[in-house]
Design a protein around this nucleic acid. Structure first.
Lengths: 169, 169
DNA sequence: ATGCACTAGTTGTTAGTGCAACTATATGGA
DNA sequence: TCCATATAGTTGCACTAACAACTAGTGCAT
């Protein structure tokens, strides 16, 4: 897992590599560092809370949430793949695991015999509902509590822009 | 890998689980969502750039950077473990890999025969210097460019607070 | 129709990760 | 001194993830 990944500040400060001409300025680099550190630490806390509550990991949450959000409660694999950041093969096996646990059911697509649907079951929805309170509490305690309203707004707009750019091209 | 992990917004909006009394408000949740999404997407881009440049992954960067930053260029395993978010056993094997590639060298600690040092080699420093430009370019292109100065500052202070809280207790 | 490129998804293989159990060493108190 | 307990780090095992190769089915152009 991509942990903290601190940056080679020394590179610029100590002028060990003066040949670096272009680079993000100090403030941007610090922002990046803060982001990956906070991300890693908070996710670790939340995963731990889920384990302690006897619930599945966040990856399962992703998939269940995505599928639960569409009207007929089912999604083709490639649609799911777009929403969840995971390789195709990884998704196949993740869905297999979810299906094995009874939270999803696989259904053939009658109009395209190559494809198959992943459909959420009642039990899948139930698990999703049990997970959210734990997840929400983790976000509040380890993340939300430490932000001002202004900061929260700034993060949404700034990182939204970052995500849009990364997704588009 | 913790991918996007979108939140169960529907939970609150559609009042499917009215029993959730406490929870982070909408803005905080959106901030969290933006953070994990941006993190996942940008890291993916940077990892890909490193692969294309024939360089090791970010995890190696972490370790090399951390060790290169101390005066005598070596660190005990447990000191390294504190800096890098990785389990003890994971760190053991990561250091083994780095050592296998000639970027680190393991040295016994003469004052405590249980412990061993991971010491950076010249080649390790060289790799670190080759990695930084690629990493820096990735940060600039996929992250920094999309932030205003104010936003960068807000992220540093806000997420710094988040990380401090997570690390302390 | 038939061939060919494209899309959908799965499987083999390899590598990285965490947990729990283990070995070895250190340390503080009777 | 000697033992209990704590600390440092490694190893066995099970699981997860990515890449590449593969199977199967679609659909367009002749």
């Amino acid at each position: 897992m991509y942990a903290t990944t601190f940056l080679y500040d020394g590179c610029m400060e100590k002028k060990v590599c003066a040949d670096v001409v272009v680079g993000p300025d100090r403030g941007r680099v610090n922002a990046w560092r803060a982001l990956i550190t906070a991300n890693a630490l908070v996710i670790e806390k939340i995963e731990r809370a889920l384990v302690e509550a006897g619930l599945p990991p966040l990856g399962w949450y992703d998939v269940l949430l995505e599928i639960s959000g569409v009207p007929d409660g089912r999604l083709r694999m490639h649609e799911l793949a777009r929403a969840v950041v995971l390789s195709r093969s990884g998704l196949t096996r993740l869905v297999d695991r979810l299906a094995g646990a009874g939270l999803l059911k696989r259904e053939p697509d009658s109009t395209d015999r190559r494809g198959s649907y992943a459909a959420i079951t009642d039990e899948g929805r139930a698990v999703l509902r049990r997970m959210w309170p734990v997840y929400a509490a983790g976000i509040a305690e380890h993340f939300g509590e430490h932000l001002t309203d202004d900061e929260a707004r700034a993060i949404v707009t700034a990182l939204g822009r970052v995500a849009d750019a990364a997704q588009s091209h």
